[in-house]
C-alpha cells in the first residue's frame, strides 16, 4: 500500500481545464504523473459510459473538470456534466465504488496554480482510498 501509485483518468475540457493544465506546464509547476488527461471539447460530451468504462478498466479515480458555471464555451455543457456526475454518484456507490473516486471540479483557463494544487490533493486522497477493486476482477 505504501507504494500504491493510483491511475487517475481526467476528462478535461479544451477551453478551461486543459488550458489551465497547459498553463501549469508552461509555468513549470509540478503535478503528479498519476493523472492521465483526456482532452474533450466540453465536459458536456462526457457520457456516463466513459466514466464507467474507466472504472471497470481499473482506474482508481476519475476526474471530470471544466469551466466555471457561466463560463462554458458552449453555454451549458458544464451543467450537463454536473447532472451526469450527480447521476453516477447515485448509481456507482450502490455497487461498492466509493463516491470519492469520482470527482467534478471547475478549473478556469487562467487557474494554472489551482490546477496543480487540485491534482496533488486529488492524488493524495485517492492514495488514501487504496486501489479500485475492479482492477483485478475478471470482468470488463
Amino acid at each position: 500500500m505504501e507504494n500504491f501509485e493510483p491511475s487517475i483518468i481526467a476528462f478535461v475540457c479544451n477551453w478551461c481545464t486543459y488550458t489551465a493544465a497547459d498553463l501549469a506546464g508552461t509555468s513549470r509547476l509540478y503535478y503528479p504523473k498519476n493523472i492521465r488527461l483526456i482532452r474533450v471539447m466540453c465536459t458536456g460530451m462526457v457520457d456516463p459510459q466513459y466514466i464507467i468504462k474507466a472504472f471497470l478498466e481499473g482506474a482508481d479515480g476519475v476526474l471530470v473538470s471544466g469551466c466555471h458555471p457561466g463560463d462554458c464555451h458552449y453555454i451549458n455543457g458544464n451543467y450537463k456534466a454536473r447532472r451526469r456526475i450527480k447521476l453516477l454518484k447515485e448509481i456507482l456507490p450502490q455497487f461498492g465504488f466509493e463516491s470519492e473516486r469520482l470527482r467534478l471540479t471547475w478549473i478556469g483557463a487562467s487557474d494554472g496554480i489551482q490546477f496543480a494544487e487540485i491534482m496533488q490533493e486529488l492524488v493524495s486522497q485517492i492514495k488514501a482510498l487504496g486501489p479500485n477493486a475492479a482492477k483485478l476482477k475478471m470482468v470488463i
Partner: peptide, 21 residues
Amino acid sequence: RKGAIKMPTDTVFYHLTRLAH
C-alpha cells in the same frame, strides 16, 4: 492484464451503462 476475463466481455459495462442511460 487481469489474468483471466469472463467471456463474453462488456456485460457488467453494458448493464451499468444502461442503468446510467
